[in-house]
Write a protein that binds this DNA or RNA. Sequence first.
DNA 1: CAGTGAGCGAGCTTCCGCTTGACTT
Length: 768
Amino acid sequence: MIENLVIVESPAKAKTIEKFLGKAYTVRSSFGHIRDLAKKNLGIDVEGGFTPQYIVPVDKKKIVKELKELASKSNMVWLATDEDREGEAIAWHLYEELGLDKDKTQRIVFHEITKDAILNALNTPRNIDTHLVNAQQARRVLDRLVGFELSPLLWKKVKPSLSAGRVQSVAVKLIVEKEREIQNFASKRYFRVTGYFNVPDKTGNMTSLKADLSKRFDTVEQANEFLSACQKSEFTVDNIEKKPLKKSPAPPFTTSTLQQEASRKLGFSVNQTMSVAQRLYESGKITYMRTDSVNLSKLAIGTAAQQIKNSFGDKYHKSRNFTTKAKGAQEAHEAIRPTYMNKPTVEGSRQEQRLYELIWKRTLASQMSEAQLEKTTISIGISKATERFVATGEVLKFDGFLKVYMESSDEEQEEDTRGLLPPVSIKDVLERKTIEATEKSTLQPPRYTEASLVKKMEELGIGRPSTYAPTISTVQNREYVVKEDRPGSLREMTQLILKEDAIKKQVVQEKYGFDKSKLFPTDIGIIVNDFLEQYFQNIMDFNFTASVEKEFDEIAIGSVDWPKMIERFYKPFHTKVDSATQNSERSKGEKLLGEDPESGKPISVKIGRFGPIAQIGVASDEEKPRFASLLKGQSLETITIEEALELFRLPRDIGKYEDEDMVIAIGKYGPYVRHKSKFYSLDNTDDPYTIKPERAIEIIQEKRTQEENRNIKQFDEEPGLLVLKGRYGPYISFKKKNYRIPKSKKPEELTLEECREIIEKASSRTKK
DNA sequence: CAGTGAGCGAGCTTCCGCTTGACTT
């Protein structure tokens, strides 16, 4: 017999709680949800009041069986799942599926894992909140209906295996809209003027005072006119202003802000951040990493205070409670923080150490005093012009939280704040050194990174901490979105420099439009987005989630019946699905670009069976159309007829080598030369349109030498079996499959027998 | 690893949110 069985969602949590509770309590975890809607026929009885059909998925059978057995032997079962909509539903599913006895079941909640919080929870049990469970059922059913009615529509009208859903489709829309915004962005050029003046510092040495002109000029003529005026002007300090300034620390991490900062400061992808955080959590180093709360437990606030006072002194400490502002936040957990505030570092992989350190610093800083600065603004008058130069400087008077942590920003920083300014007084006349008018261009809106997309989704209340990373993977796996680097281009900018008594004009090169690890929509992403926008405006509305969330809240307080809410949504929605099924054309993104100057046939682009293609001629022509795949980075939306024609210049036969043709073309992995039906990639520096036969031969020979070095061993009796050197070390290759070599064996000394044994073992393992 | 692009059609794909392993050529 077991006295008390406590069920939580996470096994790591179970372990911790068990330590607090002693022998009278057995603590187990459900590993999240234990039931879900059946996958066939929607899993919902649409005609019968939207009754959900729940089943236990195969990978949950084992845990459900175990829990059931334990529960039957327990005097009391405590359902201690999270205090939010999903947690309440998990508790209810457990109650139903385990067949629990009402009199022997208690529902308890706590949102910090401390002994006090847990003991307190055990003293204040309640019943399962049926209304909250209903809100979850409505959420689940709505998501299933949307996902499982829209996706098949896309299979019919666009391409098989595609998907659509309340969250992912809006995430894709954000990226498509951003790309269009950038395409339509007309950058404006202007001139920014900076003056450099000679000023003696305290010791009498000359230093430079840099000041920006408050006005920007639209044309080079205006800038030139202004510099001419400066040529004959006197520069006088006409105002000095000093203002105290306070900076406050950011709140402790939530999932979303952790992903953002780890991306900006450590260059982690959101997946990377979550898996490193998971390891820190499982080894007890940090609190739970999927949370929307910025709340810290009293215990954490206390230990942070101690740590700050010990390390930096009392005046660095300021206790703070942050309130969560995120839309739809459910705050079932604490903020992400170190379990022990007195540990600035931990053991583990380099990545774990770096992420931990980030979390530790952010948490500590959130409990520290403001930084105090003094901002100085010096205004410099120009005798022959009405504009003014302004120099600003910031001096740190007290560092406060900045001692440990400074939040990063996504925007490209303009360097307008400088440190200490040289001492000047009002009415000082300054000696002009140089004045530069530099042409600038307004910046196009920045593309999303994975992390900034998460930030935007959180703002819109779309998705939850547990789904941000998976959603970002999904839209990339469906090939709606790609994460890529794009090289920038150069543009010429004019610069005017007034030095001594002459104005010099020069042209400088400026790099722009460079993108690293940014999200771009693919052609398929754009087509699916436009299709959904055309027929399902309401679901694609950024406020859709927010408005259904309001209705879920009504259900949660018991004022709305959930099947009725679903019915109100489903009727018009399903009608639209039917109408789109009947009325819409197959969407291939077809677009006519113009006419081929050579043949006079139409040139068009569309999505073909294997991706975006350009096409000369039409299928009904006597002569078959010619096809060419679009290149990476090209899109149906933006490709020009010139670019499309260019694609047909390949493949090119550039001559013979060893009596066989060498053909140049561009494939899935970039430009290559094909020779004797083998492929050799070209270098980045080789241009497929102009490459010479000599260079192609060189590439072929290079690759051949490389391949020879790759062979460690082969056997005459079994020519298909090779021992090779690969990226991950030596391995055995046989019938297009690769096999790892045990560490105990030396690859050079392997016999054929041993190789066969390794293959035998490996294949028997995979069959299980 | 890359080359293709006709057409038919069986059988499959798919959602969001809650949790970890078991995978690693």
